[in-house]
Design a protein around this nucleic acid. Structure first.
Lengths: 233, 233
DNA sequence: ACCCCTATTTAGACCCGTCAAATTTAAAAA
DNA sequence: TTTTTAAATTTGACGGGTCTAAATAGGGGT
């Protein structure tokens, strides 16, 4: 009854892809995200379908069932609780928590999860600003925050989330002070190139590719609608 | 290069058996300890030998090589650091730490191990009184402590170690106050039956089987030789 | 309506971990 | 020495997870 890391990882990949592109997710997208051969993914997908965790139309794509989504969200909860705990209680540097959590998330017990959440007092965001699903396993609603790459010169924004997938990028961003909750002003946008920011009274340049994975809340045209989404580090 | 849980568990089993019986360890003893079929163990042993982790004479038994011993001790270090951390920082009850540590020991990184040891200030004993190997991975020398079942009426002893392998026994012992470091007096030994102890001014009976897995240091004939082996909880 | 390209699946292979059943070995008993 | 018995290995099976290479399906173009 216990699911293997391979199965959980595949479910997680589908979950993430589902909220980037609309539901039926392609086999090759999953394979790319997992860094596995397509044939590997096809066979895993077969097993997943047999267990009722995904719905699948050959050649068309896959979609999580409710059961599958619950599993994915539970793994996500493990991941983000672990990241938060590692950063907060074991002093892990920001950019290292992801890798460790990615292994451990498959092996902790319900008990461990409970105690982690308790120690952290049921945190709602992980160190990258991503929402942590509650113990009810409701999928956190993905407020479609603006990517930094879509901002304009002069905007004042608060960083809300930073993708946790590249260690080097994260180390750089942490170094220059771009972390969830930070207040930033867009100084310059070079077409197809760097975005220059003012952060903590210094200027920092961020390549467009990286900027695309940073989500922000825009502050300048004082919009009270999404005021509550601010990071809370 | 990363070793699987099955491989690490087998190495650990051989390590433990080697210090209970003299070196060449039988396949069936390993199988029994791991609760696996003998055929399973035989095939794992073949792989272990191919990797130079054990030396093996078919039909005669297996023995860890230096490499194999190092792996076993590293896993043991993970296990006991985890047990200590779970008990101390996550408030796990005594009898539950073993099971959780038994899974996680295979999945934590060197970094995690380091940080655990650091937070705990390089502890030398785990919650059951077992010695924690240092980061040099020297096998902790197994001081051949007396089993409680070998004590005589009137002996005053200090509990030094309690086997962590049975949850129910542990829960009971914790409940009546028999934990490493506790000072105890043997009140009665019924032949083939119960051993009655005085602990914290109450009397407690312990079945012989359980008593065999409790190690103690005898105090009554004031023997200064092993005075330094006292538990330190 | 046909062709082509790319995404996808199939086929076939391999290793790990697991087991039950059959066989072999070694050691003890007769 | 022969027989018996217990332990250990071998055989053959199966599922998971992985891959490369071959076949095939679908969705454009022309």
């Amino acid at each position: 009854m216990a699911l293997s890391p391979a199965v959980e990882d595949t479910l997680k990949a589908i979950y993430h892809l589902q909220q980037e592109v609309s539901p039926p997710v392609s086999t090759s997208d999953i394979a790319e995200r997992l860094d596995k051969a397509q044939a590997t993914v096809t066979s895993t997908l077969d097993r997943l379908e047999a267990q009722g965790l995904i719905a699948r139309e050959p050649y068309q794509g896959s979609e999580l069932t409710d059961d599958g989504k619950t599993v994915a969200v539970e793994v996500l909860r493990h991941h983000r609780l672990l990241e938060t705990y590692l950063a907060e209680y074991l002093d892990y540097p920001w950019e290292q928590v992801h890798e460790e959590a990615d292994r451990l998330e498959h092996h902790i017990s319900e008990e461990f999860e409970r105690r982690l959440a308790e120690k952290l007092e049921n945190p709602r965001r992980d160190p990258h600003g991503d929402p942590i699903p509650g113990k009810d396993l409701e999928p956190p609603n993905q407020n479609p925050a603006t990517p930094l790459s879509a901002c304009e010169v002069g905007d004042r924004v608060v960083i809300t989330r930073v993708s946790d997938r590249d260690e080097d990028d994260l180390a750089y961003l942490a170094d220059v002070g771009i972390t969830p909750g930070t207040d930033v002003r867009i100084v310059d946008v070079a077409p197809f190139g760097m975005i220059t920011l003012e952060v903590d009274d210094t200027e920092q340049a961020v390549p467009e590719g990286v900027a695309a994975s940073i989500r922000v809340t825009v502050l300048n045209h004082d919009d009270p609608a999404n005021a509550e989404q601010r990071g809370d580090a």
